[in-house]
């Protein structure tokens, strides 16, 4: 398995490099950022000094070469705004984002999978219809709108939770549930359809015939055999989840990487944008790797090779 993981990682490297290269040119194409970091009435000397300090006065090929050369040594440049290594800024905000992502995942999975199982089990019954509409609703409301409406209803009107910030478990509830809505909806759908594929199989009938309890039949046999597509979708959705983090962290003033990302993009803080995108890419790749490993745990038939 170790060898398998190593091969997978080697496969991933060119993708990560590609992401970085696209990101480099995309950001450079959006124009000279100097004016965004200096006051509009800054002197020409000050502008020139800023450009020289950050290498923005060099030609694009030269900048690119320097960027690749430094990146290969693990140096992603200094933030134009904060004058500290861009990766440090990401690292500082990493715990907050991981906390949010994990809570989101936890909510989405603990609610999504049982609902998906129930919908499949009672296929065509009102409960199935109800759950499916719930899923569609979750998928049809933009994250920012969920966020703002939940702030108004739960934090402002009912005073149940704080409107934002990162201050203990209570402040995690709103951003995590907001972010979890879309993912939960997807998990419901995938669990349902995957369960439907499995539930009429012969071994399920066999299990029932053997007199095992309905719960064991449904959870161990049916769910156990239909979980792989669910894991795949969750891993694939990690990219979407990270995109959602950008909006959610802004709405709930959550001090994470997503907010850093949006600020860096608006400010054209290239090194930080690059660092964030690389970070997102690594998390995504890692999530998919974890999914691969999980396969072999939940389904002994899958052997990593």
């Amino acid at each position: 398995m170790g060898k398998y993981l190593l091969t997978r990682l080697l496969y991933v490297l060119p993708s990560l490099l590609g992401v970085l290269i696209i990101c480099f040119f995309l950001t450079r194409l959006s124009g000279d950022p100097t004016h965004l970091f200096m006051p509009v009435d800054a002197t020409d000397e000050a502008l020139a000094a800023f450009r020289a300090k950050h290498g923005l006065d060099r030609s694009l090929p030269e900048q690119f070469w320097l960027f690749v050369y430094n990146a290969l040594q693990g140096d992603f440049g200094n933030s134009l705004r904060f004058s500290v290594p861009a990766m440090n800024l990401v690292a500082e905000r990493l715990p907050a984002t991981l906390e949010l992502a994990m809570a989101t995942l936890l909510i989405a999975v603990t609610i999504g999978i049982p609902l998906g199982v129930m919908a499949a089990y009672w296929r065509g019954r009102p409960i199935d219809t109800g759950i499916r509409y719930l899923a569609a609703l979750g998928q049809s409301v933009p994250t920012f709108y969920w966020g703002i409406v939940s702030i108004i209803v739960l934090a402002l009107w009912m005073r149940l939770l704080p409107t934002g910030g990162r201050d203990g478990l209570t402040s995690l509830v709103l951003p995590a549930t907001t972010l979890a809505t879309t993912m939960m909806a997807l998990i419901i759908r995938v669990t349902r359809s995957s369960m439907l594929n499995v539930i009429e199989q012969d071994y399920i009938r066999t299990a029932r015939a053997k007199g095992q309890t309905e719960f064991v039949v449904v959870v161990r046999h049916a769910l156990g055999n239909s979980i792989i597509p669910v894991i795949t979708v969750i891993a694939l959705q990690f990219g979407v989840l990270l995109g959602g983090v950008v909006v959610t962290e802004t709405v709930f003033s959550w001090p994470g990487v997503g907010r850093l990302a949006i600020q860096a993009i608006y400010a054209r803080d290239y090194p930080v944008v690059q660092a964030v995108v690389l970070f997102f890419a690594v998390v995504f790749v890692f999530a998919n790797l974890v999914a691969d490993v999980l396969y072999s745990f939940v389904d002994p038939r899958v052997r990593l090779k």
């Binding site: 992401v19 979407v240 950008v246 944008v273 997102f280 890419a281």
Partner: peptide, 17 residues
């Protein structure tokens, strides 16, 4: 590899950029 690259690049960031 292209698929991996694209999936790893958050849509929102790509479009804003």
């Amino acid at each position: 590899r292209l698929i991996d690259m694209q999936l790893a690049f958050p849509v929102i960031l790509l479009v804003i950029g």
